[in-house]
Design a protein around this nucleic acid. Structure first.
Lengths: 341, 341
DNA sequence: TATGAAAACTAAACGGTTTTAGCAAAATGT
DNA sequence: ACATTTTGCTAAAACCGTTTAGTTTTCATA
């Protein structure tokens, strides 16, 4: 397999100009009126020697890299990992690779990451932004770098955004619980203040109001360690013994919540009704199966990548107006939220 | 924030040579006898203008990219996603980024992926190899490109490898089940023929033999759709009604298995004992909690990245002899595998 | 047989950094 | 006073592919 050969090598070997090779390899042979005979000779040689253009050279010259930067909160989280996988698949088909980074929701780290990606000529950005990076994002925009936000957004910033209707997702879940005759429905969420969380909270409050119930809100510390999270939920349940149902604002919170319920010996689906935001493969086979507000993962990823590609392909300064795509989540009702009457 | 400034811009602005700037910025000022005064002037200017060297230029020149290629079976799988996250964190601290790709265990796709990464001057490779890519891997090796395999390996190939003792992992799990007086312990695995699966199977067989029990083996189709997997397990259980415990060879198989058990109305921990290979966050809060053979994720990732870095830092042709690191998995016993006596 | 135009191809610049080799000036030694 | 060394800095090549702005050759037309 020897070492890689370069365009220069080919030019020397075939005794033609490097430019000619470039034209032929980039499908500009016709346009540049290269004879079919020469074209074929080059193409054959290239195939024979198994030549691959050096991506780095291309990138340096063109300023493009065919790399998409995926900047998410935590790549180990099922939600983000699933999105990553689906995006990767679609990107791959169009010849793009993904560089991913986990922000840990850390503003400083995220800014560093975006700068690094920029230094690498990354062509497009898919980002779940933490707080206070409006400036960094808008600087991407002002440089005309295709960017799509997802999961959360900045209300003041006109960007591409793909997400779900968190308000109605939460509202529908609460309506369902209310219909099941649960009377003291708690909402366990994070104090992160991000838009998706705020929207879910508003949905919860609206539905509770509509049903004439009392709100029970637990906002746990965003950056707390798992053990502390569990303890906070246990304490809350101990102090609010009347709670008969819980909506967890994320998958991860549900996990911690289940630990708390386990320790309090409260049986899901019997003493307490449960719905979780974001579905999880294992929810279906839980005992009892767990109800969930499911995000349409495939659609989400499709819209993300398509929006990005639309901007990627927009030639030059031809500005594309940012789009906001809000998808409908689906409430999947399983036994964890049905009172055995 | 205007457009990026280049070394050329700095050189022109400060009226000095580009070379001098390079020396100063790369800590070679002393060595190259640049005066402190000039050094400081450049450093100040660079800071003021918020200059960042163009990574693509550096990469073209040096042949290095500070990128690690992570080629795993499926980035959406918790096991791989967790490894990805841990590796990313460590790599980031050393100034490396990750490009990841999912192989789907497809040999052809994997070869393409590795070639693409090579074209991007990726500095090192962490790979869970599918079948029949020995040649591609050994060609990486022969070019001196740092490579570490994990999860599975090629017995005939002398490579860096980090994995766990799958044989004893399975063996210990079965010993535990046998001690719990389970008499007909099945092993549900894949027909993929990969080393990690083969090792687990050998461990199962050895333990079954030692305990004087009859083996019950179900090898499901590797590439089957979820629904088909579930059906295969259901059929197997229907035809082998005496089975009272199951060891699932992977997390993913356990998920399908649980679906099958659910449909057969067999209650885990009561009618049937269960242990899964690979732990999962949700196993702890299952009802009943699921026993698992847990891989030491942190250690695994640490060894992966450290082995890679050792090779990355090995100057020139100074060959480092490949290492094989086999970690001990831990059997976490929960209620799913204890007979209520 | 000029004249113009199309056809076929190429030199050179560009992009940003690193490295090699080396030059001029100042300092030191004899 | 002259040779040698050290200091401080730089030009130019290299890395690899793309693009601009040509040049030369060939062919058709008047």
């Amino acid at each position: 397999m020897s070492k890689k050969i370069s365009m220069n090598d080919i030019a020397r070997e075939l005794n033609i100009s490097i430019t000619t090779i470039s034209f032929i390899l980039n499908g500009k042979a016709k346009e540049m009126r290269i004879s079919d005979k020469l074209s074929q000779r080059v193409l054959d040689y290239v195939k024979e020697k198994n030549y691959n253009p050096n991506t780095v050279g291309q990138s340096l010259r063109t300023g493009k890299s065919r790399i998409i930067g995926l900047v998410v909160e935590d790549i180990a989280d099922v939600f983000f990992a699933s999105v990553a996988r689906l995006i990767e698949e679609k990107a791959y088909k169009k010849g793009y690779k993904i560089i991913y980074c986990s922000t840990e929701n850390n503003t400083k780290k995220t800014i560093e990451l975006i700068r690094m990606l920029r230094g690498r000529n990354v062509d497009g950005y898919i980002v779940t932004p933490p707080k206070d990076i409006e400036h960094e994002v808008s600087s991407l925009l002002s440089e005309g770098l295709p960017t799509v936000l997802f999961d959360r957004y900045f209300p003041q910033l006109k960007t591409n955004y793909v997400g779900i209707d968190n308000y109605n997702g939460a509202k529908t879940a609460i309506e369902h619980l209310a219909k099941q005759q649960y009377k003291h429905i708690a909402f366990v969420t994070l104090d992160s203040g991000q838009t998706q969380m705020a929207d879910r909270l508003r949905g919860y409050q609206a539905a509770i109001d509509d049903a004439g119930l009392i709100p029970h809100l637990l906002e746990v510390e965003f950056s707390a360690k798992p053990q502390k999270l569990v303890q906070q939920i246990i304490d809350y349940l101990t102090q609010n013994k009347n709670i008969d149902a819980i909506l967890f604002a994320t998958n991860y919170l549900a996990l911690r919540g289940f630990e708390a319920l386990q320790q309090k010996q409260l049986v899901i689906g019997e003493q307490i009704g449960v719905v979780a935001f974001d579905d999880h493969a294992f929810f279906k086979v839980f005992n009892p199966p767990i109800s969930a507000v499911a995000q349409p993962m495939k659609e989400l990823s499709e819209h993300l990548i398509e929006t990005l590609f639309k901007n990627l392909n927009a030639k030059g300064d031809q500005q594309i107006t940012p789009v906001e795509i809000i998808l409908k989540p689906e409430l999947i009702i399983r036994q964890s939220s049905s009172k055995k009457l």
